[in-house]
């Protein structure tokens, strides 16, 4: 099962490499990874997606908690949550395709952020599935370049991941 693991860790050099190292060292996979400082400058928030059954995720969470610089770990997929990924996508856009891409972008509530005579660049945010669906709708052979931010997530409701 796909999981979104959110980690609060000390904003210190080396902390990120310990988290990433743990995954390769113990044979866990990472599908996406994003990391940035939080409102508290001494803390970073790292979000990653991985695959695993309950037992594997339990091990991953425990091993992450053992890292000295890791302050908190949650599996967002355990509860109601919001997930978003940002994509910048560059596509061939000539002739009739130009209107078609514009329409599809509107349907997906994306924005065209750069234009040349032959190329459109679209910005799109949403769940991983939605971004996949957009690429599918455009047609893979139209796509020139895709940049995805990896998944970010936050729990729904009052629940807050903080110290």
């Amino acid at each position: 099962m796909r999981r979104i693991i959110s980690i609060l860790m000390e904003n210190e050099p080396g902390a990120l490499s310990r988290v990433v190292g743990l995954f390769s060292q113990r044979g866990y996979n990472i599908d996406t990874l994003t990391v940035a400082p939080t409102e508290d400058a001494t803390l970073s928030r790292l979000t990653l997606t991985t695959l695993g059954d309950d037992q594997k995720i339990e091990q991953i969470t425990k091993q992450l908690n053992k890292l000295v610089e890791v302050v908190k770990v949650v599996d967002l997929t355990e509860g109601a949550h919001i997930e978003r990924e940002l994509m910048l996508i560059k596509m061939k856009a000539t002739g009739a395709q130009r209107a078609e891409i514009k329409r599809t972008t509107d349907i997906f509530r994306g924005q065209i952020v750069d234009v040349t005579g032959t190329v459109y660049t679209v910005q799109l945010a949403g769940t991983t599935d939605k971004l996949d669906a957009f690429i599918h709708a455009i047609g893979e052979d139209q796509v020139l370049e895709v940049v995805r931010s990896g998944v970010s997530g936050i729990a729904r409701g009052e629940k807050v991941l903080s110290l």
């Binding site: 080396g14 490499s17 190292g21 060292q25 000295v68």
Partner: peptide
Amino acid sequence: MIGVSRPIVKHSFS
């Protein structure tokens, strides 16, 4: 050495 020792230490400091 921080990199080399990473998987075999409980923690490290530089």
